[in-house]
């Protein structure tokens, strides 16, 4: 599967409080969360983001709170994929678990400019910058993680297991 969209650039250490501030965590409704996505980093993001757009960030993206509301808000806002120099551990896990594709690529994170059109092949982890014509590689996901993604996320992965053990 290939996803394509405009790049939204962010800096280093974008924490989950910036991705979805705690003042909105009295709900877990994805649509409500999406309306405030990235609000404390860029208050205009939720209004301007288009379906398929891609977040491109620096190091340690998603640090801080374990709130799964962060990748849920990003996905519900229509973002198709997140590319960063590096991810915080819990955010990485949560994204895989809910089926939000994320890729670590220092070269893509450094080279992609705000507004560039980006195309990502999810299976091969090849990132193409349509605007500049450059290509980047990302760290391939491990077999274990690919298995969870192949099952459509952790819920389906566990459903298979629950049925098998029953």
């Amino acid at each position: 599967m290939t996803v394509t969209g405009r790049a939204w650039k962010f800096g280093n250490n974008v924490d989950t409080d910036a991705i979805i501030p705690a003042r909105y965590l009295n709900t877990s409704d994805p649509v409500e969360l999406a309306a405030h996505c990235m609000e404390d980093a860029d208050p205009t993001f939720a209004k301007k983001v288009a379906a398929g757009d891609i977040i491109v960030a620096g190091s340690n993206f998603g640090c801080g709170s374990s709130r799964e509301h962060a990748p849920i808000a990003i996905r519900a806002a229509g973002v198709s994929c997140v590319i960063a120099r590096s991810f915080a551990r819990i955010f990485f896990r949560n994204s895989i678990n809910i089926g939000l594709p994320i890729f670590e690529s220092p070269e893509a994170a450094a080279d992609i400019q705000n507004g560039d059109e980006i195309s990502v092949d999810i299976e091969s982890a090849r990132i193409v910058n349509v605007t500049s014509g450059r290509e980047y590689s990302a760290l391939p996901l491990s077999d274990e993680i690919r298995e969870i993604i192949a099952d459509g996320g952790l819920v389906n992965h566990v459903r298979k297991k629950v049925r098998r053990d029953a």
Binding site: S66, E68, R93, N94, N97, I98, L154, V158, K161
Partner: peptide, 20 residues
């Protein structure tokens, strides 16, 4: 260690979880 909600759900259902 801290995990997300889906991991919590999986751990409640199966009593186990994957770790690196």
């Amino acid at each position: 260690t801290g995990v997300g909600s889906t991991d919590m759900a999986a751990a409640m259902a199966t009593g186990e979880l994957w770790f690196k």
